[in-house]
Design a protein around this nucleic acid. Sequence first.
DNA 1: GCCGTTTTCGGCCCGACTGTTTTCAGTCG
Length: 575
Amino acid sequence: MNKKQVIKVLEEIATYLELKGENPFKISAYRKAALALENDDRSMQQIEDPASLKGIGKGTAQVIDELLETGESVLLNTLKAEVPEGLLALLKLPGLGGKKIAKLYQELGVVDLETLKQACMAEQVQALEGFGKKTEEKILKAVEASSQRPEQFPIEYMLKLSAQIEVVLMNIPAIDRYSKAGSLRRQKEMMKDIDYVIATEQPHEVAEAIKEGLEVSEVTGQGETKMSVILKDEWGVSVDFRFVTEAEFATALHHFTGSKDHNVKMRQLAKAQGEKISEYGVENEETGERLTFTSEKAFFAHFGLCEIPAEIRMGREEIAEAAEREAFDFVTVNHIKADLHMHTTYSDGAYTIEEMAEAARHKGYDYIVITDHSKSLRVAGGLDEKRLLQQREEIERLNANYGSAFKIFAGTEMDILSDGRLDFSNETLEALDFVIAAIHTSFSQDEATIMRRLRQAMENPHVRLIAHPTGRIIGRRKGYAVNMELLIQWARETGTALELNANPSRLDLTSEWVKRAQDAQVKLAINTDAHSLDMLDDMPVGVTAARRGWIRPETVLNTMSRGRFEAFIKEPKNA
DNA sequence: GCCGTTTTCGGCCCGACTGTTTTCAGTCG
């Protein structure tokens, strides 16, 4: 059994204990044990004594040892025999937790969604102690909605909704300031809902104005300090607004940004020095005095930490690292000097070379690379050698006008054909400034075939970058079968860079893999792959994804100055 | 179930809101 499987069993045990209405601390002990394994970089085999990890004690270590020896857990098997499997789905219904589900099971014989629905319709649920008419109605509604609604939504969709929300927030005068919080601020790839923290002296007025301005289908909660609504969008996404005073804003923002695990660790740290963290500030447990902070940076500084970027607050090693460092020296949008991957009307882009160049120049970039598709990708209007040459001539004319103010480099996003051949000859590639290679066809080939294709591209002396290395679309398409460890190793051996595609539905490579790539001294490029002017605006999403992977500016090709980049593309690969 | 430069027992992160209750448990983030 590998570590992933062991983690899964520990989490399963926790879930079953929850369904039994067990002691919450016992439940979280199993979750903590799973987390301890997950946060350790070693493989299961490399961890000699699991009990030596913080969070794993006698009981959980015994389960782990048993799993490694026999491949199963008596405890889990017993739980499974005791608790109907159909109850697992009930935990996902809002308003239902382990205690209530245990009661429904014991008193009414509810075993799954269907029997729960029947119990509600027979009005048996409202008769239970601790339940009532309203609860029964809520449960029934939730059961009916559960069949059609995904649990989590891709970031691309949530970013669009949040842009609409912010148009409303921006125009409410009673709001002093606001910020995204939660998973959206941490830029998780998939998330359940959207969170905002709002500084205001008039929470009631703001709540009313939000309800007025947004298309809301239901207000699911409203109190003095918070409001939760369901949007009238395709899926009925839920949005939480937290209202705080200006003084509380920094601690509230930290609190509602999470992650939960990060917050737990911060609070333990505070507790060890006699303080208590809440969304309202940091309280001295002895004197009761409460401190607030002007920024998250000041908040972290109070605990002897440098500012921890929101996107790495996962409750892993970031707090220990923050105690050691002056700052996290990650890449920022300001480091980005260029975009190395974009399309024009020559292939499937919506704007001309000049229009793309002008938009990039207005973003403050110093250079760009035009990389239209190559001839085999007919659906995208890929360029043949003749059109490529014409394009190059147009680029030279535009460059002549720019003088030293800006530069357009001529490139291609060359197709790696299904049989591994490349779409252009070396003679053609030699005439280009920057060559990207990518897979666009035959996604379902087996790993060996896909890897052979990638290998051939990487071995080519002109191919500088592999674009969107897995081809996934978040929440929709898994991507092709890439052995990522091998790909990173080859990238290192051949001096080929890998792309972090900034398109919010791609973000490919993931943060975990760009981190591994950086550790292997592989260069990365953060590119928008823009097919239109507004897609050039995706760069910050890509940069944040890179920061999630702890990427430093020197790892990223497009942080190079133009002069440095020109020298770089003249050097042979692996120089 | 885990943990202890206060501790081998008694805590375990903290607070808001809802719906059920007459003072609070359960759920959520």
